[in-house]
Simulated scan of single mutants.
Amino acid sequence: MKVLFNGRLMERSECAVDIEDRGYQFGDGVYEVIRIYNGSLYTLDEHIARFFKSAAEIGIVLPFSEAELKGELKGLIKANQVDDGGLYLQATRGTAPRKHQYKPGLTPQVTAYTFPIKKPVNEQENGVSVITEDDLRWLRCDIKSLNLLYNVMIKQKAHEASSFEAILIRDGFVTEGTSSNVYAVKQNVIYTHPASNLILNGITRRTLLELFRKNGWQHEEKAITKDELMNADEVFISSTTAEVIPVTVIDGQNIGTGAPGPLTKEVQKALQDNILSETAKVL
Rank of each mutant, 00 (worst) to 15 (best):
D171T: 02
L106Q: 11
L69M: 11
Q272Y: 11
E46Y: 03
L69G: 05
E14R: 15
N147T: 07
V247T: 04
H193F: 12
Y31C: 02
A79I: 08
F52D: 12
I169M: 14
K144L: 07
F173C: 12
V33M: 06
N254M: 08
Q218I: 00
I143H: 01
D135A: 09
L76P: 12
V182C: 04
R137P: 10
I154S: 00
Y42W: 15
L276H: 14
V152S: 05
N215A: 12
L41T: 02
D18C: 11
T43R: 14
Y113V: 13
I143E: 01
T264Q: 02
G29C: 10
G71E: 15
K222M: 12
V244Y: 05
K103A: 15
V3L: 07
G177T: 04
A195T: 05
Q109A: 13
P120Q: 06
L229K: 11
D135F: 08
E243H: 07
N151S: 05
K157S: 04
Q124E: 15
T225E: 02
G258I: 12
Q124H: 05
A161E: 13
E123P: 06
L41E: 01
Q124G: 10
P194H: 06
G216V: 11
A166D: 13
A195R: 01
A232F: 11
Q156G: 00
A67Q: 06
L44I: 04
D83M: 05
P97A: 14
S196R: 08
G127K: 04
S196F: 09
T192S: 04
K103Y: 13
L41D: 00
L73A: 10
G59K: 12
I58P: 14
F212K: 02
T132G: 00
G85W: 00
T95Y: 12
A232H: 11
N126C: 14
Q124L: 09
Q268W: 08
R206H: 15
L4S: 07
V128N: 11
T132E: 04
F212I: 14
A259V: 13
K99W: 13
K281D: 00
G252P: 05
T107D: 13
Y113Q: 08
S238K: 04
Y42E: 02
Y42C: 03
S277R: 15
L139N: 10
L200P: 04
D273F: 08
V3S: 03
D21N: 08
G216M: 06
T207I: 15
Y150Q: 09
A55K: 01
E210Y: 13
Y191T: 00
N80E: 11
L9S: 13
G252A: 03
G216K: 03
I36K: 00
A55D: 00
K78D: 14
V247E: 00
G261M: 12
S40Q: 12
L148C: 04
L76V: 13
A112I: 14
C15F: 12
T241Q: 09
K214G: 02
I34D: 01
V282R: 08
E266A: 11
T132V: 06
I224Q: 01
N147D: 03
G85Q: 02
R50P: 05
G172A: 12
I199L: 14
I250C: 04
V61P: 02
D251A: 05
L76G: 13
E266M: 05
V235Y: 01
